[in-house]
Amino acid sequence: MSAPVLVFGWGNPSRGDDALGPLFVEAVEAMKLPGIECLTDFQLQVEHALDLRRRSRILFVDASGTARPPFEFQPIAAARDDSFTTHSVSPQSVLQVFEDLEGRPAPPSWLLAIRGDSWELGTAPAPSANANLRAAIAAFTAWLPDL
Rank of each mutant, 00 (worst) to 15 (best):
W110Y: 15
V28S: 01
D100E: 15
L44N: 06
F8P: 01
E102N: 08
P4I: 03
Q43N: 10
G122Q: 08
A131V: 04
S14W: 08
A79H: 10
F42M: 13
S93W: 03
S90V: 00
R104C: 12
L20N: 05
A126I: 07
I137N: 02
T123Y: 06
A78F: 10
S90L: 13
F73C: 02
E29D: 13
F84T: 13
G16P: 04
T40S: 12
L6H: 01
F24L: 10
N130R: 15
S14P: 00
W110F: 14
A3E: 15
G122F: 02
P145R: 10
C38E: 09
W143I: 05
G116C: 07
P105Q: 12
A79Y: 10
G35A: 05
P69E: 11
P70F: 00
G65Q: 11
S2Y: 11
A63L: 11
S83D: 04
A79N: 10
D146W: 09
P108R: 06
G103R: 09
G103M: 09
A78Q: 03
D146M: 13
A142Q: 13
P107N: 08
P22S: 04
A124D: 13
F60E: 02
W10A: 05
P34A: 10
A113V: 00
E72L: 00
T40E: 08
S93T: 13
P22R: 11
E72Q: 11
C38G: 14
S83V: 07
V25R: 02
A138W: 07
R104G: 00
L50E: 15
Q45L: 11
A49R: 10
L112K: 02
P125C: 08
F71Q: 09
E37H: 05
Q92H: 03
G35K: 01
A142H: 12
F71W: 10
P4R: 06
R53W: 11
F60V: 01
R80A: 14
L111P: 05
F60T: 00
F60N: 00
R54N: 15
V7F: 00
T66G: 00
E102M: 15
G16S: 04
F84G: 10
S56A: 14
P127A: 02
E102V: 11
